[in-house]
Amino acid sequence: MIAPDFAGVEEQMWIWLFAMIRPGAMMMAAPIFSATSIPIQLRLILSLAIGMAGVSSGTLDLPIDNIISLEGFLFVAGEVLVGVAIGFALQIGYSASFVAGEVISNAMGLGFAMMIDPQTGRSTPVLGNFLSIVATLLLLAMDGHLMLIAILVNSYTILPPGDAFMSAASIHGLVNFGGTLFAMGLVIALPVGSAIILVQVIMAMLARSAPSLNLFAVGLPVALLGGLLLLAISAPIMANGIMHALQDGLGQSALIAGGQ
């Protein structure tokens, strides 16, 4: 027999457990939160804190037959889908910096230079890694991580747990936004990439006019020096492009959280 003072503890624990699903799924896909350097214990604590705040602002009706049922499975599937979609929308805007780094690296001849990305733990081009760090700092500077948490908490009101299934418009909007990833990356890389291509064209003209000129011995250093100089000059413009991509990602996350 359960003591009267502990009669509602089990139900409250289940509510908190189900409330943690959506924030936990968001942290699996969102930048910064999904970094391999973030301990699992910290993610669980953040998921519980965000889930408790979300439940207090909305409603949560537990499945009648608990989690081991069709209703419980649909409950968990809906929460996971919404959480991953909200985090993945911001991840798309964040990944534009990787695309820009890939384009600039190939133009400069640094496509072979790889480094370990601290976010994913995988090998990425040097400039892609550099721009991803810049994107992380800009996201933190603009309080993007707090904005994402606020968007997730607000989603509990519009998409209450148990009825949190994405509409066809939300899925279509997320797919279309994913298609703009390469466009955003090219916009970020345009100031440097276009200038380096012009340098490559000039070097090709020189090689054509002077066949004895060793293009590999001269062209690569020129492209590297020109690329580094252009990166220093166009850094403010590229930072603005990265911030616009992050803002677009947060906007798409807000649309998903609003059921649009």
Rank of each mutant, 00 (worst) to 15 (best):
L46E: 02
S47I: 02
L48G: 14
A49K: 04
G51Y: 07
A53W: 05
A53V: 13
G54C: 08
G54L: 12
V55M: 08
V55G: 00
V55H: 05
S56W: 06
S56I: 10
S57W: 04
T59K: 08
T59E: 15
L60V: 09
D61V: 05
D61Y: 02
L62Q: 08
D65G: 10
S69P: 00
E71Q: 13
E71C: 02
E71M: 09
G72Y: 06
F73R: 14
L74K: 09
L74V: 03
F75E: 01
E79N: 12
V80A: 10
L81S: 12
L81M: 14
V82P: 08
V82L: 14
V82K: 04
V82R: 09
V82W: 07
G83M: 05
V84Q: 06
A85H: 11
A85D: 05
A85K: 06
I86R: 02
I86W: 01
G87P: 07
F88K: 12
A89S: 15
Q91I: 00
I92S: 10
G93R: 08
G93L: 01
Y94H: 13
Y94Q: 01
Y94I: 01
A96M: 10
F98G: 13
F98M: 13
V99Y: 03
A100F: 06
G101N: 06
E102A: 10
E102C: 00
V103T: 09
I104V: 13
I104E: 00
A107R: 15
M108A: 11
G109L: 02
G109E: 05
G109Q: 06
L110Y: 03
G111M: 01
G111P: 12
G111C: 05
A113Q: 06
M114H: 01
M114I: 00
I116A: 13
I116Q: 08
I116L: 14
Q119I: 08
Q119C: 04
T120N: 11
G121K: 07
G121L: 06
G121D: 07
S123W: 00
S123P: 07
P125S: 13
P125H: 08
V126G: 02
V126S: 01
V126E: 00
V126H: 00
L127W: 03
L127I: 15
L127S: 08
L127E: 03
N129F: 06
F130P: 04
F130W: 07
L131M: 11
I133N: 14
I133Q: 12
V134F: 02
V134S: 09
V134R: 08
V134I: 15
L137N: 13
L137H: 09
L138Y: 08
L139D: 03
L140S: 10
L140W: 09
L140D: 00
A141H: 15
A141I: 13
G144M: 03
H145N: 08
H145V: 14
H145S: 11
M147L: 14
M147T: 15
L148G: 12
I149L: 09
I151C: 12
I151H: 06
I151P: 14
I151F: 02
L152C: 12
V153I: 15
V153N: 05
V153L: 03
V153G: 06
V153H: 02
S155N: 06
Y156I: 09
T157D: 01
I158D: 02
G162W: 04
G162L: 10
